[in-house]
Design a protein around this nucleic acid. Structure first.
Lengths: 150, 150
DNA sequence: CCCGGACCTGAACCAATGTTCAGGTCCGGG
DNA sequence: CCCGGACCTGAACATTGGTTCAGGTCCGGG
């Protein structure tokens, strides 16, 4: 049981892909975007440490919440470099989404509660209705697709 | 007060844009995509009837909920042709999003409740965690950007 | 009747999020 | 040592939801 010989198995792209359910092309893309990292074998092939699994999982979960990759990259940047992140690290990072998540939930609930009223009652005539004029809450953010704003 | 002379004022793109807060370019885009309709003056300029305001409002609200335009177009197709939609019509149509909205809210709540647990406790090691493997609920839908799935 | 501002069209472009492909390299089991 | 499957890169393409631009037309107030 020598320390050195027992290295946690490094994963190839294919393996990480299969384990995470994320296509290898997407993994390479995430890497180009700086969301995950790998080191290379002598033959220039990617090898991932096991915590990449958790990073990838975090990415997908975050995307489900509707967070764009750029923002995910930012909070992933909060994880310690050169040290395998602990549970506390992950908890701290995932805490980042809680407020966002709560805000989103509240917005959707408001929307649900007002949708029928608003559209049904005729106040969806713009100008008045906060549903149709949410600029205050959302603000302009420049061009490009906007996922949860619009 | 002749019937014919009193026509509800038709809106130009610029007016509809200003009233709705939606850029004229977007309105033309929606029209190309079949989400709104106009008729033309002799000089080929667009004129919108007033209920376009409500259509546009509905589109924006729906987008806020995260519905893609294609789906919005479909439910707008449920509105009566050649008759100004009544409140009941609108209510019926907006009913379409309620289930979706409730589902989304439930998913987000679940996500919020499990996020810290899951990531914090280490079960975000994929394979096991329903957060990271939501295929059952979401399913594959082909290529391209996926907004709320991912 | 004229002029400037609003409007028209089609094409090109943007950004996010990936996928696909061509052409070439690596690696491990027999 | 060899072969087929996995991997590499860079470029091109896809999709959603628009914006911007060039080049030309319309329309209404003076």
């Amino acid at each position: 049981m020598t320390r050195v010989s027992w290295q946690a198995k490094q994963l190839t792209v294919g393996e990480l892909s299969e384990r995470s359910g994320v296509p290898a092309s997407a993994l390479r893309f995430y890497e180009r975007q700086g969301l995950i990292h790998s080191h290379r074998t002598a033959g220039n092939q990617r090898r991932y440490t096991r915590d990449s699994l958790r990073r990838v999982a975090f990415i997908r979960v975050s995307q489900r919440v509707g967070i764009p990759l750029a923002m995910i990259r930012e909070v992933l940047g909060l994880l310690p470099e050169e040290r395998t992140p602990t549970r506390a690290d992950w908890a701290r990072v995932s805490q980042c989404w809680r407020d966002d998540l709560n805000t989103r939930i509240k917005q959707l609930e408001q929307l649900r509660d007002r949708l029928t009223d608003c559209i049904g009652c005729g106040c969806l005539s713009i100008d008045i209705c906060t549903l149709a004029n949410p600029e205050d809450a959302l603000g302009e953010q420049g061009p490009g697709p906007r996922r949860l704003k619009a």
